[in-house]
Design a protein around this nucleic acid. Structure first.
Lengths: 217, 217
DNA sequence: AGACCTTCAATTACATGTAGACTCCTCTCA
DNA sequence: TGAGAGGAGTCTACATGTAATTGAAGGTCT
């Protein structure tokens, strides 16, 4: 009567490796040796192998045929191409969110915004990032489109990984203003406005990135 | 001196399974039993297991924890959500293609269009589909954005799979006109126009789908 | 010193064994 | 007749063995 549906070893290994990557314990470039990790995590090689393949699948690692996998590193240039995609997807998410929007969404967004504001006021970087991510997560969940949610989750994963290497922040103040504008557009119920404003937000982030990394066009 | 870089068994198994899915030999809903496939393909279970995991990864199959994998079936409703994403990505691809565009691209697109026209004239469905897909492939390759290319490839895979179940065609004539408009916009060098026209194209396909499947909003 | 070869340890990719979970079928009993 | 127990067979998930390859270290010759 204790049964979790998924008590597979591979799930735990995957989660633990993912965590080690995000904390930096496994830094970009680190080799993911299956036997070594198996010993470290005290499981056999099979679930480790499967977990590493999953990491490769969501591009937290890259593999070359007979040479194994290493923790991926997302450079500024790649991040710019990712943000080009992110721009249109966040726009779509905002549009769809408006079409589905309920009071619940608006209330939750306001809450995230308040937290964001407060975090910025007291210069709490971690809380700022958290509130920022929560705002975006709320919008995409509200889109109701499973593909949009999945793809934006993937992108967020890549961005988190990129933060190990590059600085991604593009002025916390700016982001806050942009979020406010997005909320206003959603409240107004205008899908086109929401799409435009959401796109403009990511566009600005991308511009900051491009400049900071100084290249590409 | 004969060495191909990748002579891994798993690659061949993956390719063969993929092919069997697209030809319909493995129809949506079919269970992918690892031991059975291993015997069928005359390899051991290991590479088959890895190949099946890859199929799950690109959503040609779905798996449930202790119950194995089955060939995925893409329903009309899911396809509509996929097309919502496809709309903005094709728009982005067209926009970026304009920014990069060279004469080579325009020439290749014209060629694909001519083939498309001819295939429609003689009612060759296979050739029509091929020329249609080629046109889109050219545009996204020209975008120069690796993420856009990868995501649209994924989407095309899903669409191909969906064709096993649903009819996706939305009037071959319409598609041809839309492609002509996209080419015109690209030739004119106006990124915004290209994005709008490309989006409108997918929008129409989606509308046709939504109607044909009669639901969703 | 520097280029090349050899050797060695580590690792990948594949093969195979097996406990426990799941499915399906049959048989029992109300 | 229909619900439910029981059992057989199949399969997944994990464990483990191993050939061949790779990368690194060290040695040799020029």
């Amino acid at each position: 009567m204790s049964g979790t549906a998924t008590d597979r070893v591979v799930d735990g290994v995957y989660a633990r490796l993912r965590e080690k990557i995000f904390t930096g314990e496994l830094a970009p470039g680190t080799k993911l040796s299956v036997p070594a990790l198996a010993e470290l995590l005290e499981v056999s090689r099979s679930p480790v192998r499967d977990a590493v393949l999953r990491l490769v699948q969501d591009r937290l690692a890259t593999e070359e045929p007979r040479r194994g996998a290493v923790v991926a590193s997302v450079g500024a240039a790649e991040l710019v191409t990712i943000y080009e995609v992110r721009e249109v997807l966040e726009g779509l998410a905002a549009r769809l969110a408006v079409e589905n929007a309920g009071r619940r969404l608006v209330r939750a967004l306001r809450e995230a915004l308040d937290d964001h504001q407060h975090a910025v006021d007291v210069s709490d970087l971690a809380a700022t990032t958290e509130a920022d991510m929560r705002f975006h997560a709320l919008v995409r969940e509200a889109s109701g489109n499973h593909e949009v949610i999945r793809l934006l989750d993937e992108i967020q994963t890549q961005v988190r990984l990129a933060m190990r290497t590059t600085t991604v922040t593009a002025g916390p103040r700016h982001a806050l203003d942009d979020h406010r504008a997005i909320l206003t557009a959603i409240e107004s119920g205008d899908p086109n406005a929401a799409e435009q404003v959401a796109r403009a937000h990511i566009f600005r982030l991308r511009a900051a990135l491009r400049e900071q990394a100084g290249q590409r066009r």
